[in-house]
């Protein structure tokens, strides 16, 4: 289910005094099985961009092609597109509504017309995929913890068996353990089921250790589209875009200014550890 954006512009409130270009000349493709991060300041156009990917928004100019279908073409069936490209919004738990967890997760596949006999299995699978125990099914989603509610909401999207999963800030407001649990489940889903994952995040640490490819958006335009290692080598420009680098990279940067022989970028703490230990040993040998 490849997705391709060509010369996409999006203008909010076009023709009114409040007209504002949210996306300008976006060229971007997502291939099957990729794990892509999208970072950008609040208001940079990230959320507008991801809503293009399942046809919730249509470009003002240019085309968005999802699995060969152009979202602006006449008579295109956006409903099936939205089932295959699952979008988990920010604070998705606010969209929970049913009396039980099972009913909430079943809502998507029921609307898809999945046979009743198959729905129970889909619900179980989706809950297991997000790491929730099946005992939780008959409970009210509103009596769960924040992290559990967030995972129920993600399960509701997974139950539709999407080929592409887009998550907009899936860990905002969660405690460190809740955050790690959700991210490791997403990584497993990507590895085991091979679904394409697009992760919108404000956490440089999270994208650094998870994604294969990182897209940076600023002022409605793509400013970087490369591996996290390449992107985080541009620390000072990232700061002007309201972003930053992972702290492991920041420590290496500070050490470098003090004359330590360390690389510019570390994506994980373990990588930073190894680089610092090597540089430390080198300094002792030279001293």
């Amino acid at each position: 289910m490849p997705i391709k954006l060509e010369q996409v512009d999006f203008v909010y409130a076009g023709g009114s005094p409040f007209e504002r270009a949210a996306l300008k000349g976006i060229n971007l493709s997502f291939l099957d099985g990729e794990f892509v991060g999208i970072i950008g300041q609040t208001g940079s156009g990230k959320s507008t961009l991801v809503q293009m990917l399942n046809g919730l928004l249509k470009p003002t100019r240019g085309t968005v092609t999802v699995n060969g279908l152009v979202t602006t073409a006449k008579g295109v069936k956006l409903k099936s597109l939205r089932q295959e490209v699952g979008l988990v919004f920010q604070f998705a738990e606010y969209q929970l509504f049913a009396e039980t967890v099972a009913a909430d997760v079943a809502f998507g596949p029921e609307n898809q017309g999945v046979p009743a006999s198959e729905i129970a299995a889909r619900v179980d699978q989706a809950l297991l995929n997000v790491g929730l125990p099946l005992e939780i099914k008959e409970r009210s989603p509103f009596e769960l913890s924040g992290g559990q509610m967030r995972r129920v909401a993600i399960a509701g999207v997974l139950a539709m068996n999407p080929k592409v999963l887009i998550l907009d800030e899936p860990t905002a407001g969660l405690d460190p353990r809740g955050r790690d649990e959700i991210l490791s489940r997403i990584r497993e889903l990507h590895r085991q089921r091979g679904i394409t994952v697009i992760l919108v995040s404000h956490s440089m640490e999270d994208v650094a250790r998870l994604v294969d490819r990182l897209v940076v958006i600023h002022g409605g335009q793509i400013v970087y589209d490369a591996t996290p290692r390449e992107v985080f080598a541009h620390g000072s420009s990232l700061k002007t875009y309201g972003l930053g680098v992972p702290q492991a990279t920041e420590v290496l940067g500070l050490l470098k200014t003090k004359g330590w022989a360390v690389p510019e970028v570390a994506l994980t703490l373990d990588e930073a550890r190894q680089a610092i230990v090597r540089a430390y040993q080198l300094r002792r040998e030279l001293a």
Partner: peptide, 11 residues
């Protein structure tokens, strides 16, 4: 009360 949870790094 978690007043920074929704903000980007600069925010």
């Amino acid at each position: 009360d978690e007043a920074t949870a929704m903000l980007d790094p600069i925010g």
